[in-house]
Design a protein around this nucleic acid. Sequence first.
DNA 1: GTCGTCCAGATTGTCGACAATCGACGCTCG
DNA 2: CGAGCGTCGATTGTCGACAATCTGGACGAC
Lengths: 206, 206
Amino acid sequence: MSDVTDRLRCEILSGEFPPGTRLIELQLTERYSVGRATIRATIVELSAEGLVVHEANRGATVRTVPIQVAIEIAQARAALEGLQARQAAARASEAERAELQAIIRDMEAAVDENDHPAYSELNGMLHRRIGQISGHSIGTELVANLRNRGAHQEFRLALKPGRSSISLPQHRAVVDGIVAGDGDAAEAAMRDHLASVESALRDWMS
Amino acid sequence: MSDVTDRLRCEILSGEFPPGTRLIELQLTERYSVGRATIRATIVELSAEGLVVHEANRGATVRTVPIQVAIEIAQARAALEGLQARQAAARASEAERAELQAIIRDMEAAVDENDHPAYSELNGMLHRRIGQISGHSIGTELVANLRNRGAHQEFRLALKPGRSSISLPQHRAVVDGIVAGDGDAAEAAMRDHLASVESALRDWMS
DNA sequence: GTCGTCCAGATTGTCGACAATCGACGCTCG
DNA sequence: CGAGCGTCGATTGTCGACAATCTGGACGAC
């Protein structure tokens, strides 16, 4: 919608407004130099995206995502992205298959060089690209929503040492399934991958 | 949020505003006797729910759902509700298992009496209840969203003669799996059920 | 006759101001 | 000294008005 919506969303995701922060309309008005009506619209929108909660007459706060809900998010993503992986296996063109393999190669290089930011970026790109290739617009939309909600936790998880060496072979399995046109394998690999994210979150619970 | 949001959502779902209708803010203002700011907020909200599309400087229209997208909705629901059915099988209390069986019995009665509205209502209640029992808040939220978006098509599909006699045994299989505590069976049955919805939609495509 | 331009009406985007509501502080009373 | 109540500041909900933008049709040039 408005440019302001993107900016606020970005600042929430980057941790500028930590979870639990109250979003006071007047403060945001002067921060972004727009009227309150605009701020109001962005808050309603981000509320629908699940990034903020908006109680009547009590204003909006940045959503705090309990570990339990982060686990649910990972489960829902497993279900939806598994579906996407299956369809991507059936629909990917030759060029797209090569592109996915190239991303995997870049990820291997990033792991070798211990370049965590690059790996994280490639990770996001791989998931997004598979969604696009699947052609599943609804799934892509819902997954983007879920990714927003879980961004904070995923960010922390990615920093855990040794995490990338666990997830890399799982990603490779997903891409192998898609390249081979084996929808069952691709879906299973994707669900495995996100199940491993889920169990890592459970460990983190303590 | 506002009471107006619920009213407008209801009227869209009931067909008062058919897909493609332009939603003009001034008309809605006088229809609901509220200011334009309120209407604006409800439109942003319904837009986020996917019920209406809202192009910049061009206003809002009731979303038209092409058959292709309706199929995607059914697929995404299959993935998410399959997950819910699995978890419901693991978590349902004795009372809840009995409740689900009671709904199935009521559905059988509705089919016997050819009471389509009652069957449709029970159908919705069964799916909703399974979502609640699963305790999966994220999944429940996403499924509610998807149900809204596909409401028109599902409505037409439900009117198709003989449809209930196909879907009833599928529903029974889902509940049987949950009652038996067999998560795999419950998930498979739910996915089967929504796959059959998908193929019915594909038939309807012609 | 057709294309491009321009104008008028309609509709949306944004703003500032007022009314309604909530939370907290301080005060009084038991 | 503690509980209940009233008041006050802060924040949100709503409204009307103005500015910006888009749509459709009329007009004129080629």
